[in-house]
Design a protein around this nucleic acid. Structure first.
Length: 897
RNA sequence: GCGGACGUGGUGGAAUGGUAGACACCGGAGACUUAAAAUCUCCUGGCCUUAUGGCCGUGCGGGUUCGAGUCCCGCCGUCCGCACCA
């Protein structure tokens, strides 16, 4: 009997699929199309289990759709620009381009053995000039339509590396690489006008029925729509009024001061006049704009000396303060503070000794606010103190509406809607990104590059010399010749923009490019019309906001510029966010001697020591689990392979807790924790099918799955059993009569139904459970050869989306026609799903007490009669009549005694 | 602080309001074997019971229902997202 040797059969079938070209997306007539896409990877050069799970899920869908008669588009590419390539160049020399392309080669080599049904002919990387050149064309189109603009913006500036940092690159107020204190700096930057689409991006979320509710909610919160009142404070000493925005206009009678952002025009004017203000504003700008920096920052204020009049009581004067917690790019950059009903305003007022006045009280309470602001839910009724709109008792919500109406009628304010979503700053002072295709001309200003000059390619070297990435700053900026060019407008010598685009730009339209990856324009409308939208998009929840929101914006912008059809304004019809692959962490503790770098003092500290899964062994006897180090066996001259010696170590470790290994289950795989499982290792020892089967089998796809060695082995054993089963059936007597043909066929049709339903609904783990069960049924069956052969071939087909190589091999072994991968998906025969008889559980008062076997279509009255005659029911009723009998046909009988 | 999700055996998890624990891991017993590995068979939520059977059981407390893991309300816990957003 031949053995199941996965690497052998896997290579064979991959070659067969490749030669048949069955995964190349074609627009053949008469078939519906299906576009399945997994979020493309960053080419780190190392495939990990998370990739395997992500791509396997997409592959299950793609292969299933292929066999249900679709033209399938299932492409793959690389999100290849970005900092890691430059960091690698800085750390160990070399060139980002070489590093990236070599990693791409490596990753393709690592992905191919997985047997994914990808159309490799469409592959591209975002760092290909053919791709980013088209991205530059898009940028120019956007510019023409007013979807991109330049403005000054406050950014995180790393003074050592001399670059802008993304918020997530700032750690504790310091640059993540240089360790320098990050400054807030104002720079001229390019922005996409995503905020123009705030309302549309928000309201269209309702149409995304096949997106996880969680993602839609996260986007909704991110866009952050709010309704409030905008109005002005007149200054007592003249000058432009100060415009403020508030969502709680109803608290105006509790106003204490007017606050403006350090970046507000008034603050800037003062800054120019006064050194004291300049110093204060500089202090405010120190420290990052990150969450962490903000949270720990103390409230700072500066009294400008300016006074304004309360809009309702002209003799009530309020001071104007500059406050560090007010953001320039939200609302108007100025607020009125109501400390009684806002905690940060209260903190500020207590610090600077400003008045605190309640605008309202809780219904049963009249103590004025002391150290905690009174902020009841907006739906709760409160009691107002002398409210100008005539309110006595009302909810916050009603009060806000009444106040807005009042202000609008009186003419001093206006109800407005604001969004938290800000425009998307795309400029990066980096080398390894898509150059922004504009030219700075002394005479003409900022001029878009001509499309025929695209791509504006990155220079590989500096006039024959390698670019030095170890020098801080942007290599493009200091390149001797690259910047020089002719002004596209007047032809005079001019200089190129040296900023490159945020890498999120690259991934905001790649899905559209896949429909025509070699087109001379960003897209080919006929192809886009056919293949778009992405029917199923699969990726990590970490992209719930930025990538997906940016892509939704890009799709709209591309539609406006004629690069995508109307229907693609929402480019992803269905989204699935898959969980991570985790692995237990094994750790012990050890004492480590440490020398303080400042004082030179020595001390002993306890440190975690992490062990590789291969270095530990789980021992479990009589329900007591113990994890021991293999080295413990060696130290005692014992062997892991001998049962008695395993027991001995089990007892030893149990009695000496110091020898025990602590297990932290379900932790994210991480190099530093020594708990990474390398897919390549699994594939070479067990085969890709085992890895694919396992990552789908144990947990629902949206949840994390924990990789366990025993689980992986079990998956492999199962595939082995299926292989042996196929072999056994192949050796059966062709004419043998059997028993239970009909039962086996019924089970087979049930399995077809359940697995199909499972795949359709992303219930891969449940589908696999059904396949396990059916394999068990088949292996015990004594049915005829003909029926067993049909059953095993159907089993192969049902498994083929998950374990395509094994399925193909079984198909071939049983003499199946053509390739299993392209054979039509089996269809469950309804007639075979209907059971003649059915077992009905009988409940008495909702508790199961027995069961009866009845004909499937027996009418209710008959079923009731049979149920009442049941022994347990008779006993429970004890002669009296039942209060009620519920018969759910085909389901259950419940007798209320 | 705001918003959301989740909570089922030793473990991962099944279950259109209708027999809770499918399927798998771990564990136990047995077969085969000189022995081990591999493979195969059976058992495996808890308690009581020889068996039959009975009682309890889906984080906790209430509610709706003939019937609740599932729906509603209130707690507790875990995880995630957002956050000086006026």
């Amino acid at each position: 009997m031949p053995r199941y040797i996965a690497p052998e059969i896997e290579a064979r079938w991959q070659k067969a699929w490749d030669e048949a070209g069955i995964f190349q997306a074609k627009r053949t007539g008469g078939k519906p199309k299906y576009y399945v896409l997994e979020m493309f990877p960053y080419p780190s050069g190392k495939l990990h289990m998370g990739h395997v799970r992500n791509y396997t899920m997409g592959d299950v869908i793609a292969r299933y759709k292929l066999s249900t008669g679709h033209n399938v588009l299932h492409p793959m590419g690389f999100d290849a620009f970005g900092m890691p390539a430059e960091n690698a160049a800085m750390a160990s020399g070399g060139h980002p381009k070489d590093w990236t392309y070599s990693n791409i080669d490596t990753m393709v080599e690592q992905m191919k053995p997985l047997g994914l049904s990808l159309d490799w002919s469409r592959m591209f990387a975002t760092c290909d000039p053919e791709y980013y050149g088209q991205q530059q064309a898009l940028f120019l189109d956007f510019l023409e339509k007013g979807l991109v603009y330049r403005k000054n913006a406050v950014v995180n500036w790393d003074p050592i590396d001399m670059t802008v940092l993304a918020n997530e690159q700032v750690e504790n107020g310091r640059g993540w690489r240089s360790g320098a204190l990050v400054e807030r700096r104002e720079l001229t930057q390019w922005f996409f006008k995503i905020s123009d689409f705030s309302e549309e991006l928000l309201s269209a979320l309702d149409t995304l029925e096949n997106w996880p509710a969680k993602v839609r909610l996260m986007q909704e919160n991110w866009i952050g729509k709010s309704r409030g009142l905008q109005f002005s404070f007149e200054r007592t000493g003249g000058g432009a009024p100060i415009e403020v925005y508030t969502t709680r206009p109803d608290t105006l009678m509790g106003a204490s001061f007017v606050g403006i952002s350090p970046d507000h025009p008034i603050a800037k004017a003062l800054e120019a006049e006064s050194e004291e203000v300049a110093a204060f504003v500089a202090e405010c700008r120190k420290g990052g704009t990150t969450e962490e920096a903000i949270e720990t920052a103390e409230k700072l204020g500066y009294d400008t000396g300016i006074r304004v009049k309360h809009p309702l009581k002209p003799d009530w004067e309020l001071p104007v303060w500059i406050a560090n917690f007010i953001l320039m790019d939200y609302g108007t950059g100025a607020i009125f503070a109501c400390p009684a009903h806002d905690q940060r305003d209260l903190d500020f007022c207590r610090k600077y000794d400003l008045p605190v006045t309640n605008a309202f009280f809780a219904l049963e309470e009249d103590a004025p606010v002391a150290t905690e602001a009174l902020v009841p839910p907006k739906s709760e009724k409160v009691r107002w103190v002398d409210h100008f709109a005539g309110l006595t008792e009302a909810t916050g919500e009603d009060a806000i509406n009444a106040t807005v109406d009042f202000a609008e009628k009186a003419g001093w304010g206006q109800g407005v809607t604001k969004y938290r979503l800000r425009d998307w700053g795309l400029s990066r002072q980096r080398y390894w990104g898509c150059p922004i295709p504009v030219v700075h001309c002394e005479d003409c200003g900022v001029v878009p590059e001509k499309k025929e000059n695209l791509p504006i390619a990155l220079p590989y070297d500096e006039g024959g010399k390698p670019i030095d990435f170890s020098v801080p700053g942007n290599p493009l900026d200091r390149h001797p010749t690259w910047r020089d060019c002719a002004c596209p407008s007047c032809g005079k010598p001019a200089q190129r923009e040296t900023d490159t685009m945020d890498t999120f730009v690259d991934s905001s339209w790649y899905f559209a490019r896949f429909t025509a990856p070699r087109a001379e324009t960003p897209t080919d409308m006929a192809e886009a019309e056919y293949w778009m939208n992405v029917d199923q998009y699969i990726g990590g929840i970490e992209h719930a906001i930025l990538h997906l929101l940016y892509s939704r914006f890009f799709a709209r912008a591309m539609h406006i510029c004629g690069h995508l059809p109307e229907k693609s304004k929402e480019p992803f019809d269905a989204l699935f966010t898959q969980g991570m692959v985790t692995h237990a962490i094994y750790k012990t503790r050890e004492l480590v001697e440490r020398t303080d770098s400042n004082t030179g003092e020595k001390s002993t500290v306890i440190k975690d020591k992490f062990h590789y899964p291969d270095d530990v062994v789980q021992l479990s006897y009589n329900g007591i689990d113990v994890v021991a180090l293999k080295s413990t066996f060696e130290e005692h001259g014992m062997s892991v392979d001998v049962d008695n010696e395993r027991r001995a170590i089990h007892a030893l470790v149990y009695q000496n807790p110091g020898l025990a290994v602590e297990v932290v289950p379900s932790a994210k795989m991480s190099k530093s924790k020594n708990n990474v499982v390398d897919p390549l290792h699994i594939i070479s020892s067990f085969g890709a099918d085992t890895a694919r089967w396992f990552v789908l089998s144990d947990s629902p796809p949206e949840r994390d799955v924990e990789w366990t060695a025993s689980g992986a082995e079990a998956a492999h054993k199962h595939l082995n059993r299926v292989w042996n089963l196929c072999d056994r059936i192949g050796e059966m007597d062709r004419n043998a009569e059997g028993e239970g043909d009909e039962e086996l066929l019924r089970e087979m049709h049930k399995c077809i139904r359940d697995v199909t339903l499972g795949i359709d609904s992303f219930g891969f783990n449940a589908a696999i459970a059904k396949l396990y069960a059916f394999t068990g049924t088949l292996s015990k069956s004594k049915a005829s050869y003909k029926v067993q052969r049909q059953a095993v071939m159907t089993l192969a087909q049902l498994m083929s989306p998950m374990t395509p190589h094994l399925a193909e091999d079984i198909w071939n072994h049983q003499g199946g026609e053509g390739l299993c991968a392209t054979a039509p998906w089996p269809v469950a025969d309804d007639a075979m799903l209907v059971e003649d008889t059915v077992t009905l559980p009988i409940q008495i008062n909702g508790k199961r007490r027995g069961e009866i076997e009845v004909a499937k279509d027996l009418d209710k009255a008959e079923v009731e009669k049979l149920a009442l005659a049941h022994e347990a029911v008779q006993k429970a009723l004890n002669g009296s009549a039942p209060k009620k009998v519920i018969v759910v046909p085909g389901r259950i009988v419940n007798v209320v005694a």
